[in-house]
Design a protein around this nucleic acid. Structure first.
Length: 494
RNA sequence: CGGGGUGUAGCGCAGUCUGGUAGCGCAUCUGCUUUGGGAGCAGAGGGCCGGGAGUUCGAAUCUCUCCACCCCGACCA
């Protein structure tokens, strides 16, 4: 957008740090942003990725923020096994249908030398009952809950685990859909259906808060339609976030599982009435997919833009060095600046590499560091610094004293956060189009319409809907809470 | 899993049709000159041309076969 403006003024295409641009090829741009920012790379294993230190630092910040919020809800962290007995997964009928197709199965416990050299699973070491590598843990946690819940006094039971899961995906993309991914999965059990549903809604609000206040990502909270529901859930709630290419990303989910799992796994308690009752359970998860969403929401043609609150580095200090004579003084000045920022609770990164100045600058741009501060011999002499906001670029270049800058930083970071959120929020709002019914949905997408449409939920009962969805690769994303479930949002999705 | 595409230096690519000593740009290293939004000149290093099997005097190039990645679709918290 900024690039577009420059292009018009100068009559030529400005150089962008990322090629291709979003407009030219969005999926390829996405890959290149990840590479340029050094977030992750493909692993030798199909569909898996290596999350590199800078990318993992981002995830850790997201994790820390969410973990604190989860604990605020009186949920306790625990850990359950990676391997799940095969028989567990088949206990809940819908659940099996949902996951059987993408399970990795462990069948042996030993290797031996094969006839043609190399190692093969030992024939004599076949497992009596194979294990699956967890695609999600409802079943194995349900098994434990059944033991832990005896009396109504044991409820509610609220558990969460941070772990990896594996789903044998046919089509993978970095962060958005990988065979193995990291997430947290929460599993709560209650005595009444009301509490369970309230909990599922509550945890969605927690996610919404994380996205809004930490990752600056707007979205549309709502309920999933029946055909988009989690296998085994009575109700699934979601936060659907619009990416810059107009597609929806299911950014997290929260499920009210009713008594489906408590019946399959025998999660029962004796109530005050002396009778035995099945508990009501919920499950809720947020994964490394959120990182993919963050990238596609905020980044531009010069690379990543990090929302300040989860950014591994909030301020990049770039020493501008002319020659070796002034170098020591400038570096010394920068180190002091870094210390002062640290004391203020700001995560500052000082680039002490001997790369040339522009390369250091572009490095911080591509990594999306929210604020860049340039310190040269001139600044050191005057006791001033020059700073620039990543989201605005060089138009935001400002000079001031070191003290002024240090005092301004928290405000600056808050402004970047606010600007990122508002930009994404406006973008989302402007790209949701109200339509009257199926004909208008068809017209909209046939004419190359961009983004989501919002229709009366009656359209879900239109027998022609399926054909239209297929034709334009669109699905119903959710029934937004803000419309009291009377409308449905439809669009393309990841 | 179906259709299409791509695998050649860290990154981006040419070379493949028509077999004959592995190339270009950026990055890296050395030196000099430069330096506040992607510097210039000169030189240097770096490749089992995705893997395997064939055809051939000779294969990045032709054939077969795996594998991986990307896009579309199907499927999918």
């Amino acid at each position: 957008m900024n690039a577009q403006a420059q292009m018009n003024q100068q009559g030529k295409k400005p150089k962008t740090a990322i090629t291709p641009t979003r407009e030219e090829n969005f999926p390829e741009w996405y890959q290149q942003v990840i590479k340029a920012a050094d977030l992750a790379e493909n692993a030798p294993v199909r569909g898996c990725m290596v999350i590199k230190p800078y990318g993992f630092a981002l995830w850790e910040n997201v994790q820390r923020a969410l973990d604190d919020m989860i604990k605020e809800e009186d949920v306790q962290n625990a850990y359950f096994p990676l391997l799940i007995p095969l028989s567990f997964i088949s206990r809940e009928a819908e659940h099996v249908d949902g996951f059987a197709k993408e399970c990795a199965v462990v069948t042996h416990h030993r290797l031996e030398k094969g006839p043609e050299g190399g190692l093969v699973p030992a024939a004599g070491a076949q497992l009596e009952e194979p294990f699956i590598i967890r695609p999600t843990s409802e079943t194995i946690i349900g098994d434990s809950m059944a033991k832990w819940v005896q009396s109504y006094r044991d409820l509610p039971l609220k558990l969460n685990q941070w772990c990896n899961v594996m789903r044998w995906e046919l089509r993978t993309r970095m962060f958005l859909r990988t065979s193995e991914f990291l997430w947290q999965e929460g599993h709560n059990a209650f005595a009444t259906p009301e509490e369970a549903n309230e909990d599922a809604r509550k945890m969605l609000e927690v996610y919404q808060k994380l996205y809004r206040d930490w990752m600056a990502m707007p979205g549309i909270p709502g309920e999933k339609t029946a055909d988009e529901r989690f296998p085994g859930a009575d109700h699934s709630y979601t936060y659907e976030s619009m990416m810059q290419d107009g597609k929806a990303l299911q950014a997290c989910t929260s499920h009210n599982l009713g008594q489906n799992f408590s019946k399959s796994f025998g999660i029962q308690y004796q109530g005050e009435d002396g009778q035995t009752h099945h508990a009501y359970t919920t499950s809720w998860g947020l994964s490394t997919r959120s990182i993919g969403g963050l990238i596609m929401t905020h980044s531009d043609d010069d690379g990543l833009i990090m929302p300040p609150k989860v950014a591994p580095h909030q301020v990049a200090i770039i020493p501008v060095l002319r020659d070796d004579s002034g170098k020591a003084t400038v570096i010394e000045f920068c180190r002091k600046l870094k210390e002062s920022l640290k004391e203020k609770g700001v995560r500052a990164f000082l680039d002490e590499s001997d790369a040339r100045t522009p390369d250091k600058m572009w490095g911080s741009i591509k990594k999306g560091i929210p604020v860049r501060v340039e310190v040269g011999a001139r600044e050191v002499e005057e006791g001033t610094v020059t700073w620039v906001r990543r989201d605005i670029g060089r138009d935001s270049k400002t000079s001031g004293t070191v003290d002024a800058f240090i005092n301004e930083v928290p405000n600056l970071l808050a402004q970047v956060h606010q600007a990122l959120y508002e930009r994404a929020e406006t973008f989302t709002r402007e790209n949701v189009t109200d339509v009257s019914g199926l004909d208008e949905i068809k017209q909209f997408y046939a004419a190359g319409g961009f983004g989501f449409v919002r229709a009366d939920k009656a359209v879900l009962d239109d027998p022609g809907l399926e054909a239209v969805q297929k034709e334009f690769s669109i699905t119903s994303r959710c029934l937004p809470f803000e419309d009291d479930g009377q409308k449905v949002i439809i669009g393309k999705s990841y």
